[in-house]
Design a protein around this nucleic acid. Structure first.
Length: 440
RNA sequence: GGAGGGAUGGCCGAGCGGUUUAAGGCGGCAGUCUUGAAAACUGUUGUGGGUUUCGUACUCACCGGGGGUUCGAAUCCCUCUCCCUCCGCCA
């Protein structure tokens, strides 16, 4: 949610910002509803003020009446006065409830429309309607092949080593599902543990293990609803949705809270599975483990002071890069164009790693500054140390990293001519000390 | 799944449908006293919205959320959420 004051002051500018995203939002309708809301509010509050005064008057009369009754005096005059005094506020009350009904309707409409306004892009975000305008940072280009044989794709390697079982995954759950077996499952677990340890021990995040199913309100707060409703798995009977990313859960860690400035930044890292219908990507990347309905991810998330969010974005990007470096993965950084950044984001970096077998750059991390967009929806604030008014926090998220694609890169880049895989050194302590995955 | 009890300010905890303010305590902040501190005493204390002479006052709402009854609701009714106790089931 963006600040409605910006829309009030510069509606045309806001429209232009949203147009840069190749998106649109009902700004004119919002202005109209907002104006009507304030009209009603002015009127209904004045009426309420009048009614409050009248009711207080009746209260005083009732006090006198009771006193008189106790004293055994004649109370008919007072009783008449009370019933006469009721007439005016009763009429006011009728007007109030009519206006209140309209107010409720207007506010519901306004809220619904505001939910369809995306975050506004940062002035430095490259402008362009789609991903072809993304700016690729160093290092660029594909790695020259270091192989003296033709490297295989992970689906062939995994099947041959019997560490990825596509057939049985499909048997259980259909396409886009697979079973990791033996050293494959162990490798994934090792990567998860390595990443969590690095973010906790070296980068200072607090490890969190959130629920994997959360209320739909959590998705709305994170900016995933209403727009991405079709891409989320949900419970048929209860108001539960399965995480599409841990970001959804972590956004809500401090929902409806006011943090002390001294508690900032509040930094979390969580391992969770992620569930996505992939409706928008139907038919895309169906081979291998690149894009499944279920995948694992380690996610970083921070609540920071608004003045810190821009610098923090750079640091979080580096935290993701640190993982790539430690695992020996060749990566490149993309700065996403206005047409490609996420709905809640003002500025996003993607990190892609090179996979030598399928010969593509794979997105393993997306690092975004969501400014106060999610914080407004989630009502997450902080109290400035100088005692000023409470302000909305800024939130940032960064994958650190997405597991299947890291697996792909390790399998494909570390393969040897005989199809065995060299285990990256940093993972060996988590793999019982083994140095390679071999066919047995 | 069944039966019952709860939710009040940062925290604890009162609150017969009304008579100017949600009592009281704790904590926090400021001040007095003191060389300093403690104690004591005094004052102060939340969130959001609207109007505005825009920095000043006025005003409205908020006692778990949402409706309702009433001239008037923390208080009565309905509903949802969460917590607690007991029974049953269970990794």
């Amino acid at each position: 949610m963006i600040d409605i004051n910006i829309i009030r002051k510069k509606p045309d500018w806001v429209k232009a910002q949203i147009a840069k995203r190749n998106d649109s939002a009902p700004i004119d309708a919002i202005l109209e509803l907002d104006g009507r809301r304030r009209e009603i509010l002015k009127e209904v509050e004045e009426l309420r003020r009048q009614r409050n005064a009248s009711s207080k008057q009746i209260g005083r009369l009732m006090g006198q009446l009771k006193k008189a009754q106790r004293a055994g005096e004649d109370v008919t005059k007072l009783e008449t006065a009370v019933s006469q005094a009721k007439a005016a506020p009763r009429q006011i009350g009728d007007k109030i409830s009519t206006l209140d009904d309209e107010r409720r309707q207007v506010e519901a409409d306004l809220q619904e429309k505001m939910l369809w306004v995306p975050n506004l892009p940062h002035p430095d975000t490259p402008i362009g309607p789609d991903e072809s305008y993304n700016v690729i940072h160093e290092p660029q280009g594909a790695a020259e092949s270091v192989f003296d044989f033709t490297p295989k794709a992970h689906w062939d390697l995994g099947t041959a080593l019997d560490i990825i079982d596509f057939e049985r995954g499909v048997k259980m759950s259909g396409s886009r599902f697979y079973v990791l077996k033996g050293k494959g499952a162990r490798l994934q677990r090792a990567i998860i543990q390595f990443m969590l340890d690095m973010h906790v021990d070296k980068h200072g995040y607090t490890e969190a293990y959130p629920p994997f199913m959360v209320r739909s309100q959590c998705f709305e707060n994170a900016g995933q609803l209403p727009k991405f409703y079709d891409n989320v798995y949900r419970d048929a009977e209860e108001d539960f949705m399965w995480l599409a990313t841990a970001e959804v859960a972590l956004t809500n860690m401090h929902a409806d809270e006011i943090l002390d400035e001294a508690a900032l930044p509040a930094s979390y890292v969580a391992y969770t599975p992620c569930f996505r219908r992939e409706k928008m990507s139907a038919g895309k990347d169906v081979r291998g483990i690149k894009r499944g309905h279920q995948f694992d991810k380690v996610e970083m998330y921070q609540f920071v002071h608004p003045d810190e969010s821009e610098a923090e974005l750079e640091r979080m990007k580096q935290h993701a890069i640190d993982i790539c470096d430690a695992l020996g993965l060749r990566y490149r950084v993309l700065e996403l164009a206005t047409g490609d950044i996420g709905y809640a984001s003002e500025r996003t970096y993607d990190i892609e790693i090179w996979a030598a077998g399928c010969e593509e750059w794979l997105e393993v991390s997306s690092t975004s500054n969501c400014t106060d967009f999610q914080a407004r929806r989630a009502n997450a604030k902080f109290r400035p140390a100088d005692g000023g008014k409470t302000r909305y926090l800024h939130t940032l998220n960064a994958s650190g990293l997405a597991l299947p694609r890291v697996m792909i890169a390790i399998l494909e880049n570390n393969q040897q001519a005989d199809g065995s895989i060299i285990v990256p050194e940093v993972l060996r302590p988590y793999m019982g000390g083994i140095e390679e995955i071999v066919n047995c």
